[in-house]
Design a binder for these strands. Structure first.
Lengths: 282, 282
DNA sequence: TTATATTTTTCATATCATGAAATAGTCTTT
DNA sequence: AAAGACTATTTCATGATATGAAAAATATAA
């Protein structure tokens, strides 16, 4: 885990909680700039296009798109390929974009999203990553209920008996998964625990298809857990978000209801860390 | 109603070598967009600034900077930190910027080669290219050791004090090298830094002859780095591969041992991108 | 050559970006 | 609590400048 948030210069004092300025009303946007950024964004996912292709597809005048590109080119944000006569994203865009990473950690980004997740579901929200074949719980926002699921941050837990763990396994590439399964022994913690590689693989397929995993009292009797994966820029599952609670509140019927907000939270966190959202498909 | 636009849009034939359009005259730039991009760029290297700090430092009207930021925020290119009331680069900038790497298959092709290089040497492997007289680090596979060399992707570094940089310089043609040396001032970062053009040229000759370069604590005291160039089809050095580690593990005697796998990895990457292998001779 | 496609430049027009200043919101001090 | 001191938004009048149409320039094709 990398937490490198070493703000040396104390900016201004942290204020309490501003209210009125919170929402940038977005009526103050600059139209021409927004259009230019639309071109920038479009080009980034449709690289190698000629000017007229771009202007056609974006329904903008060629002259306009041309000037936008030339301007961005001046700063290295886009690049013109002389051989092919087409446009690409430039190195400076990479340099600037990379500076995004030097700031906040996954945990910080997750915090507000987890808080909201806890509020909408009423259950404890958890964040975990994989570490050496185990799930490492990084952060938790606890429910107000008096019966709670509790994983102190720093807890390590086997992947096959954890909602987050299974969500991560479900998106692991075949090779790594097989090696993992060959090495690991699937310890039983309860009579619900998955102990055979075949059963686990079947569950993982289901998880991949529907987009979330369920820990059905597989680690602790009386506790259910619904988790969804968080992806990085390379579409790799790097973390998982979950809610967990006692079976008394989280019945089998609640699973469907709770899965929506969990998946939505995972989607939001994926976007917040600059990841690529993967729609639940095989 | 929208008119459908389902033309097959076959790419266009690669043209020979256009002459007249090569230089975008840069008189067609859009002023307001350029100013906005200046704010974007400035913010990226001075993150965590409040609106007025930015507008003061950039000598722009607060209202103008404000509208630029709000517009960019609308696309996630910048972000507003409500706690601190300051601005940062946003996740979408990272997403777009990262698409620069997709342009060439260099990074993709390099990835498995770098992983293997890291495993055989035990040290962090790096991939870099030249960008405007600097080395731009594109990708990294980190060692498992707890003491690591760390160049986050996106980092820029002077060429004369970098293993990859020197490997690239060593294969630059005489003219360009001389112009480069005339223009650049060879800044000293440590007492090992090469600061005279003569010394650098001599080192470059050595590098060309033996096929790899060594950064002997020239940028950072306590860090050594061994690098080799990657060539394209025209025998031009377009990238460099390196391993870097602390002097405690990478002693002067290790250099010889590590140089083999580095050169081999560079050779493999050269082949992987369809380049022409250049056997180490003048 | 001529014809066609694509990229630049020119130019007239009115859009809309701009900064000054007013207003609103927040923190600090009394 | 209220005033004072900042900072962030919004308003508004103005003209700078972004825009698209069309012409010119440059390339490809026949």
């Amino acid at each position: 885990m990398e937490l490198q948030d070493n703000a040396p210069k104390l900016r201004r004092k942290a204020r309490g909680r501003p209210r009125g300025w919170d929402d940038k009303t977005a009526q103050n946007t600059i139209k021409s700039l927004d259009r230019a950024m639309e071109v920038f964004e479009y080009l980034s996912q449709a690289q190698g296009k000629a000017l007229t292709e771009l202007s056609d597809e974006m329904r903008q005048a060629p002259a306009t798109v041309y000037r936008i590109l030339v301007t961005l080119q001046g700063r290295g944000l886009v690049e013109f390929d002389h051989e092919e006569q087409v446009w690409h994203i430039g190195p400076q865009a990479f340099v600037i974009g990379s500076r995004f990473l030097r700031r906040t950690s996954l945990v910080e980004r997750a915090r507000p999203i987890m808080r909201k997740l806890m509020e909408t579901t009423g259950e404890t929200a958890n964040l975990g990553i994989e570490k050496e074949g185990l799930v490492l719980f990084l952060s938790q926002v606890e429910t107000h209920e008096s019966i709670r699921a509790f994983f102190p941050p720093g807890t390590l837990s086997p992947m096959h008996a954890s909602g987050i763990g299974k969500a991560l396994l479900a998106h692991m590439d075949e090779d790594r998964l097989n090696r993992r399964l060959a090495a690991a022994n699937l310890q039983a913690f309860t009579d619900q625990s998955i102990t055979s590689p075949e059963a686990l693989k079947k569950d993982l397929t289901t998880i991949r298809l529907r987009g979330f995993s369920v820990d059905n009292e597989e680690k602790t009797t009386g506790m259910r857990c619904i988790a969804a994966p968080v992806f990085d820029i390379n579409r790799e599952a790097v973390a998982g978000l979950s809610v967990s609670g006692p079976t008394s509140r989280v019945g089998a019927t609640e699973v469907e209801r709770l899965s929506r907000p969990v998946m939505e939270a995972a989607r939001q966190l994926t976007l917040a860390i600059g990841g690529t959202v993967l729609s639940p498909q095989p």
